[in-house]
Amino acid sequence: MQLLGVRLPDNHFVKHALKQFYGIGDKTALRLCARVQIHERCRVRHLNQSQVTALTAFLSSPANSPPVAVQPLAPPNYVPPPLSQPVPPPTLREGEKLPADTLREIKIESDLRRQMRENIAHQRNIGSYVGRRHAMHLPVRGQRTRSNAQTARKLNRVERYN
């Protein structure tokens, strides 16, 4: 199946297939499945149309996705109302804040690559050691260069592509 230009293998579990996206790993894939209500062992070919739409909508702009309703935790001294009355909707206590929704802040594919390139360009522009090492195609964090360092030679560029 093709999703936003990325090919997801039909026979794979969705939670594994989502890792085809640059910027989505184990954890994010699981959380994403939970968010769009896809069960753990669902395979890509078993996705229905609404799930595909939900996935596409979320991944095309995670920041603009609708916020999820998070239920605040009950305080330790919570006393439930008697069964005869309707349950009141949960409300935030004084000074209580809902945790930030980190799943909406993810960046994938070209956005993430652009961010990475901007970070390297920033280091290069201010002339820091990290920026210099990128420009020289050498390891940045003190690794040896007498041998090995092949990954750095391949990847460390000011205009890094991957």
Partner: peptide
């Protein structure tokens, strides 16, 4: 020191 260097260490700029 310029604006962009804020948050970095002084040593990063003296190889």
């Amino acid at each position: 020191v310029t604006q962009d260097m804020v948050g970095h260490k002084l040593g990063e700029f003296a190889i």
